[in-house]
Amino acid sequence: MIWSTAANAAEAGAIARALVAERLAACVHTHPVASTYRWQGAVETAAEVALVAKTTAALADAVAARIAALHSYAVPEILVTPITGGSPAYRAWLADAVADPAQG
């Protein structure tokens, strides 16, 4: 899973749609969050939209690169969390959803 945040719902939606349309992620959840963080020496608080992208380990670097390319932040949050378990049926669906159909 890859966690990121976006500046607003429009940006989060565009990133989510691109990741799924390009078969880099099987699903992307988005939800509003309030973030408090340190930036350029000051403590800031902002409304953001979190993204949780479900993908495979093999695609993690490509997903991270695509998020960075589509993102408005100078330093976008991109955190990769390995999945070590879960429903076999869901994991099979995920793998199929990101598989390249041309590779058969």
Rank of each mutant, 00 (worst) to 15 (best):
A6I: 00
A6T: 01
A6R: 02
A7G: 07
E11C: 00
E11D: 02
E11G: 00
G13E: 08
A14Q: 11
A14Y: 00
I15D: 01
A16L: 00
A16T: 03
A18V: 07
V20P: 01
A21I: 01
E22N: 04
R23G: 03
R23T: 01
R23L: 09
R23P: 07
L24Y: 01
L24D: 00
A26F: 10
T30K: 02
H31P: 12
H31W: 15
H31A: 15
P32R: 11
A34I: 13
S35M: 12
S35L: 11
Y37V: 03
Q40G: 09
G41M: 13
G41E: 14
G41V: 10
G41F: 05
E44G: 12
T45D: 15
T45P: 14
A47L: 14
V49K: 12
L51W: 06
L51Q: 07
V52P: 04
A53K: 06
A53W: 05
T55Y: 00
T55A: 02
A57R: 09
A58F: 07
A58L: 10
A58T: 07
A60R: 05
A62E: 10
V63H: 05
V63Q: 04
A64E: 08
A64C: 07
I67K: 08
A68P: 09
A68T: 13
L70H: 03
L70G: 02
V75W: 10
V75M: 12
V75L: 15
I78C: 09
L79T: 07
V80R: 12
V80Q: 10
T81S: 15
P82W: 10
P82N: 11
I83T: 14
G85K: 03
G85M: 01
S87W: 04
P88T: 08
A89Q: 11
Y90H: 10
R91A: 13
R91G: 06
A92D: 13
A95R: 14
D96H: 12
A97P: 07
A99Q: 03
A99L: 04
D100G: 10
D100L: 11
A102L: 14
A102G: 15
A102F: 13
Q103F: 05
Q103A: 15
G104E: 08
